[in-house]
Design a protein around this nucleic acid. Structure first.
Lengths: 192, 192, 192, 192
DNA sequence: GATGAATGAGTGTTCATTCAT
DNA sequence: GATGAATGAACACTCATTCAT
């Protein structure tokens, strides 16, 4: 089933990342030991050290790979006019990015305490802040700022909370996106 | 600084809880060792075990103490008519409960991966589900259901994300509550 | 069931011994903690220390009480003529002593490694040697000496091994005694 | 004294077993800590865990190695006719197996309480029962059954009790074997 | 006659990491 | 491109024991 020993040659690095992400997301970073990762891959722990200098570096490498879509989105956003349409499109694209890397975002969300003081954590937080900066207007009322925070986090929360409930993933994504869009629209509507 | 050895007598249990919550919230559950807790209190690890059977039980005791307001709120909610006004009042009360136990909620949010397979985690999840059940109508559209989830989680996210930003806590609370209330109101508005 | 708190007053020492013997025999000395004993008695560990200076002393006290029959038997034996009849009678009496203190002997047998370097262990071994000295003739052939050792140990082994097998305890005791008696008789029969 | 660091390479597993058996037999299983074993070998505790998953597994590995002769004997016995001669030969071979693994059997005998709830203990008990089944006739009188039990246990007891007494080991073995053989012969002699 | 609170020394076990081969 | 063997530091937890009250 899936991949002979021969075929595995050369893609070990990738396989480590895959297994690590799976386990990190499932059990958390701290509770996932290198022994466990190695065992699943049927290699020795020492082999992991051939490909990565430390455990933390495995996580860092995941982050580098998986947050590229987010970086691209931020980059794109910065080049656009700060209109409501742009913001709506950002949310739209974000919801797709989220789906493409669900386990990674899940991991980031559920392991904040751990990830916070890992270099890698700062980076993620930075990205979130930059995302937020694309959405909110610094001069807006606090309520409007909260709406923006809400729009962003609702997308995470939605994906995570709705995970074990009900229907079609695409329907869910759309519903979540709809609510987030409403929030951002409201936040950008001039009040009398 | 604060409290002679004499005065400390008899309140060790409480002091363990305080320090534990502080460290758990700051560094996470796994990364906080009993040695660390003990050292801060200037007692031995064994002393902790006089007061709590396991590390997990320290956490459980925190939960028991700190989620009582939430339990009371759920109980109260169950006795009320399922009107929009009730739901708004639930959110209102919830925002106050949240403030009274911020570090605990922060901990719960940032350590989900860890806490998931602990009793504590399950209990917490149960409570959240029961809270949600007070707010949402099972027959509502998915979008409305998402609005309810959003209303609830936005309160958490708001508290957590706004922590290191700007102004008066009470202003923040009100802004967050306003957004959540909007969401719940929207979710309970009949659509044409 | 059996004994109000009031009635228990004053016999705590005895109750500690009873529970300790039970647990020591069941799980071994090392694996039985004072906490366990205390819990079963519904007193605190510290209470045990009111009655006994150390854990070892609990064991010592048991031994003192329970090996009195053995001491008396040895004393009696020393006053008798070294005839075959005496030896047979010693075995007979020993088999009865054994039954009266089965858990204690079981404990002694199954915890030799532990008990060996406890003061109390020396004593038990001494007693066994003195028993043996009543049965064997120093000038006898090695085979006859082995018969004596066998006679003695078969009684222990028999009681322990037959525990979870078959019928009436008194029948068992008699069968064991018969074999032991045969051995001692054989050992004391002059060879051509 | 015996073996440079270089030479030690590669036989650590064996050395752990040797030292463990020695200490287990000397002080008992519970009272022998992994620290002690490690110190004697001049390695760290963690090194032990490279070779064995748990403390119990060290014991299990000893048993596997040391009770192979016993297993072979049982297997051989099952293939033979149930005659007196076979039984005598079983005892004969058993006495030799016993000598080859004296410390292990001594350990098993003196740590019964501890070992009882370990896999090792159950396996050992099974083997003893199967040995016994080769020797005894289910329809025999209880006295004859006791003779069989006695024959078996006398061999153990003999080895253990005669340890610190007198002469040539081979003489002792023969004397013990003689007594055991008598018992089994007696047990298999039809009574009038 | 006993408890509440604590200690010091220890246990078995796990972890990320290293390095010669 | 990987392994076998090991380490050092830590961890949660348990134990027998003490002592002021």
């Amino acid at each position: 089933m899936g991949g002979s020993r021969q075929q595995r040659r050369g893609d070990t690095r990738q396989r480590i990342q895959d297994v690590a992400l799976e386990l990190f997301a499932e059990q958390g970073y701290e509770k996932t030991s290198l022994r466990e990762i190695a065992e699943r891959l049927e290699v020795t722990k020492a082999a992991l050290y051939y490909h990565f200098k430390t455990k933390e570096e495995i996580l860092a490498s995941l982050q580098e790979d998986l947050s590229r879509p987010m970086d691209e989105l931020i980059e794109w956003g910065k080049g656009q006019p700060r209109t409501l349409e742009t913001k709506q499109e950002i949310l739209n694209r974000y919801s797709e990015a989220l789906i493409g890397a669900t386990p990674f975002f899940r991991f980031m969300h559920e392991n904040q305490a751990t990830v916070r003081e890992l270099r890698t954590g700062e980076d993620f937080k930075d990205r979130m802040i930059r995302m937020l900066d694309l959405l909110r207007e610094p001069e807006a009322t606090m309520t409007d700022q909260v709406r923006c925070v809400s729009a962003l986090f609702s997308m995470h929360a939605g994906m995570l909370a709705l995970k074990d409930i009900e229907g079609d993933p695409e329907d869910k994504r759309k519903a979540i996106l709809e609510v987030a869009t409403e929030l951002i629209t409201q936040a950008n509507t001039p009040k009398p």
